[in-house]
């Protein structure tokens, strides 16, 4: 069971769009195997990038409006949002290596 917070449509603006740091949004579904399998990697990455990148989840079945707004066609889809704008997007089961490869461009010297 993932420990990352599920955000609702009502919370999305405050938690994601207005966040002072980049936010990785995990668009997932409760029935999705690769979403569950990706959860431990996301939690490890969330610990690694604590204070630099925020991590939240959006349940595409519960929050269809946001999923549609970001044209999410499959799950899991990950979108990194910085200053309210999507800056990276990738899909499918992720490894810690893949996550670090994407996220480290947006922290520290890569900011």
């Amino acid at each position: 069971m993932s420990k990352l917070k599920d955000v609702t449509t009502a919370e999305f603006e405050t938690e994601v769009l207005c966040s002072p740091i980049p936010v990785l949004v995990d668009f997932h579904a409760v029935w999705c195997g690769p979403c569950k399998a990706s959860a431990p990697a996301l939690e490890d990455a969330a610990r690694e990038f604590e204070g630099e990148i925020a991590f939240v989840k959006v349940d595409v079945d519960q929050e269809a409006e946001i999923a549609e707004a970001y044209d999410v066609q499959g799950v899991p889809t990950f979108i990194l949002i910085k200053d309210g704008q999507p800056v990276e997007r990738f899909q499918g089961l992720v490894s810690r290596g893949k996550l670090a490869g994407v996220l480290e461009q947006f922290v520290g010297d890569g900011k």
Binding site: P40, A41, D44, R47, E48, S95, R96, G97, K98, A100, G101
Partner: peptide, 21 residues
């Protein structure tokens, strides 16, 4: 190969799943 080596570069006490990656 770079993806593999990126997965290798983790502390296995903190991120044990990296071994599986």
């Amino acid at each position: 190969t770079v993806d593999l080596m990126m997965s290798l570069a983790w502390d296995l006490d903190q991120a044990p799943g990296a071994a599986q990656d």
